[in-house]
Design a protein around this nucleic acid. Sequence first.
DNA 1: GAGGCTGTAGTCAAGTTTGACTACGCCTGT
DNA 2: ACAGGCGTAGTCAAACTTGACTACAGCCTC
Lengths: 205, 205
Amino acid sequence: MSAIRLLVLGAVRQHGRAHGYQVRNDLEYWGAHEWSNAKPGSIYHALKQMAKQGLLLAHEIAPSTAGGPPRTEYEVTDKGTEEYFALLREALTTYDQKMDVLSAGIGFIVDLERAEVVELLNRRVRGLEAWRASVTEYYTPEEGPESLGHIGEIMNMWVHSADAGAQWTRGLIARIEGGAYTFAGEGGDPFVGVLADGQENPYAS
Amino acid sequence: MSAIRLLVLGAVRQHGRAHGYQVRNDLEYWGAHEWSNAKPGSIYHALKQMAKQGLLLAHEIAPSTAGGPPRTEYEVTDKGTEEYFALLREALTTYDQKMDVLSAGIGFIVDLERAEVVELLNRRVRGLEAWRASVTEYYTPEEGPESLGHIGEIMNMWVHSADAGAQWTRGLIARIEGGAYTFAGEGGDPFVGVLADGQENPYAS
DNA sequence: GAGGCTGTAGTCAAGTTTGACTACGCCTGT
DNA sequence: ACAGGCGTAGTCAAACTTGACTACAGCCTC
């Protein structure tokens, strides 16, 4: 799973209704073009594809205000919302080493409730620990690790990286349990990470 | 850049001459199907594509010994060898967070000379440090990190991960400078990570 | 007021990735 | 002896990704 669907669904959802260029701008504002495959082609492709699959509803819109070709606006459907939360939960839970998906998940983490987030992240830590154990066991046969030559360095890197990931996740869990941020159902103002309609993007490329 | 071209070129090179299924088996033996996109379709596609581009030379081969359809054998051309070393050097140097490319690079690291490897890895560490600095500066404007809300956790994760990567790389440099492994031009038996013709794969899926 | 620059919005072809599928020959049990 | 499973070797369509390209409106400049 790549991060693009989660990112696009999340961006459209935060606007309520958005066209491709708006999504593109939000993702750039979040720095997503640097840590994921959020390029124009992928974004427009994802929008069309998800509209075809009923996750988004496409409105044909008249020629744009503010120059440029006519544009299409999208809205998230109920099915799309379901998919969004499924992707979000998966992004926070799975321990597969893809940073882009996890980053996207963190970006939308406050759409879930605090208790659930803690539980998902704990599952993530447990997954990482289990994976670490299986790698160290599977790839060090009786002859000892030296039998693998420099190939052993690859396993070493995985293990190192799993450890670092687990440690960072534990820190995040501690901050969240300590009361940081405002999550769904907590009444406070949620942090909104989208650009308002006229606002210029301070992080433009 | 994905890891597949480096992996395929490296596998063919170690055999001298190999068909697709052999490459596929080597990559599975290295566990590459777990940490990269080394699936059958990608492997065969890469072989054909690189043959078309003159990096590999394709020999049409008679119906296989040992059952199955006829097979095509490939050999690395001079141009392919050039490309191989370019990809290998890049894999070891660049600090972009993709684990699969780095893993592939480690797998072939002994094809370079020890001094060059140390230099490439040092470049990698310096790149990570510079990137870390730019992230912490770029994404913490005057208002302080809190202005980003939970989005700041994404930067925090990047930084954490860059630190872990740098630390691991420094450890590897130390081991290599301490004399570990046998590199190109050092006369010893290089570690060979391919399956011999009749050998069965102990790590088959 | 014509020409060019900039910003808005999106398209397109080429390349890559995925996962399921085909095709063939050997072997094994009955 | 032969049906069915297994291993060998590879193909294919559908989806996704990439990076360069188009098209249009407003604005600035001369």
